[in-house]
Amino acid sequence: MFRMFRAVTAVTIAAGMTALCGAAYAGYNIWTGEYTFSKAELQTAVDKRFPTTLRYGELVSVKLSHPRLTLDGETNRVITLVDAALTNTILPAPPVNGSLALNSGIRYDATQRAVLLDNPTVDQVQVQGMPQYNEQLKAIGAVVAQQLLKDYPLYTFKPDELKLNGTEIVPGAITVAPDGIRVQVNQK
């Protein structure tokens, strides 16, 4: 009897530890009825998009690198701070370095089964030592935000992740928190 109690206790502890370890990865939480994506997972998803270089006409080349995510729970938005290096492609000159803060909402797209960045805008522009370029970088940043992050998937659900005990579930409300994003799921 004591052996059986120890075995059941060991299995229970192992299951609990597995659940705790699994919390660090995207997964469904049966107690809250939501999927959770950690800030680290979201950062990894955005890292795949960078570095990238965009050209505007034949005049300007913009290299964007080193994205850093901030999750703003108060506004339910994701802020992506990226380093920017602007180069004039006609006149030889050193690049103008700066940074852009791109502010995006979050939405679910049922066709793609994905949580996407939505309606990105430029929040902040900083140009090191050359504030006269802030307006140009802000104009370029508005285009960059749309080209680079609009409808960018942070997570794509696998078909089996949208079934629970044989019943289809659909993502609902999406909540941004400082440590991750939670997606409420509902029965279809």
Rank of each mutant, 00 (worst) to 15 (best):
Q124V: 11
T53I: 12
A173S: 08
W31E: 10
T75W: 14
L91R: 15
P94V: 04
R107E: 10
R77K: 15
Y108C: 06
T44K: 06
A142Y: 05
P67W: 10
D151C: 10
T111G: 09
T89A: 09
N29W: 00
E168T: 15
V170S: 14
T18F: 01
V62G: 06
Q146I: 10
V46E: 02
I174F: 02
S65L: 03
Q126D: 05
I174S: 05
V122S: 00
I13G: 06
A85Q: 11
A101K: 07
A15F: 13
N76R: 09
T53Q: 09
R113K: 03
V170F: 14
P67S: 11
L154Y: 01
G141L: 11
N134R: 11
N76Q: 15
V11E: 13
E58I: 07
A14W: 08
L91Y: 09
P92A: 00
A23L: 15
D109Y: 01
L137H: 06
N97G: 05
T175C: 08
G141N: 10
A10K: 03
L91K: 12
R107K: 14
D123L: 13
N76F: 13
T121N: 06
N29Q: 14
Q128K: 12
T156K: 12
T12C: 10
L54N: 11
E135S: 09
R49F: 05
R6D: 00
